[in-house]
Amino acid sequence: MTATGTFTPRPGAAPLPRMIRAQAALETRMLLRNGEQLLLTVIIPTLLLVLFSAVDIIDTGAGRSVDFLAPGILALAVLSTAFTGQAIATGFERRYGVLKRLAASPLPRWGLMTAKTCAVLVTEVLQIALLTAVALALGWSPHGNPAAVAGLLILGTAAFSGLGLLMAGTLKAEATLAAANLVFLLLLVGGGVIVPLAKFPEAAQAVLGLLPITALSDGLRTVLQHGAGVPWSDLGILAVWAVAGLGAAARFFRWE
């Protein structure tokens, strides 16, 4: 046996599944540790759900307001994590050279993106569990096909991830921070999350109806509030956004 020092070369990548698992765990911890992110992903959706269910501020149509609000708030949770949170975090990772340094590690780029997606999904599961518990406590009675709900949430996540990564990979970190928050606010108001789309003028409704947030909140409401079948048109709108967003992100994303 030859004597070996501490640094005697013995290079090698860890097995791919282990790298992706470790990266996903780290990304999730970074998301959950960030105070501003938690405000966006947990506190704001929970407060909106409780406030608008308890106080009759907006006319949400027939039935209990929580039945109208809960699906919208679930859509907001997806928006906050997959789009706003991911865009801001990734924008700053790009700015601080985190993506650059990881590009020189054994973890392939697609592995990093897979890990980021896992972190977003884990965060969403936690959000949905919390928001569902709060909504049930407020008297929510959901209906419908769980598979349709899962399909909507996953396509919504894909659509918002694509748009968030496109923003993070092309704009400056500060611009991403401002724009992602602004888009969050605009979609919160205009995307059928807490304000029914019917409140807007008809011409506006036609445009707003094509937004991914509207498709997601409307689709979730169709299933969860009205117990209807699979909302194909909403799924279709989300699929188009997902393909366009992820395609553009893959094409234009800059790592440095």
Partner: peptide
């Protein structure tokens, strides 16, 4: 740069180590 702003030193180093065999 090259490190997550919110990561701790030992956490980031352990993570980097974990990417190697």
């Amino acid at each position: 740069g090259g490190v997550y702003p919110g990561a701790r030193a030992d956490e980031m180093l352990r993570h980097t180590a974990g990417l190697h065999a």
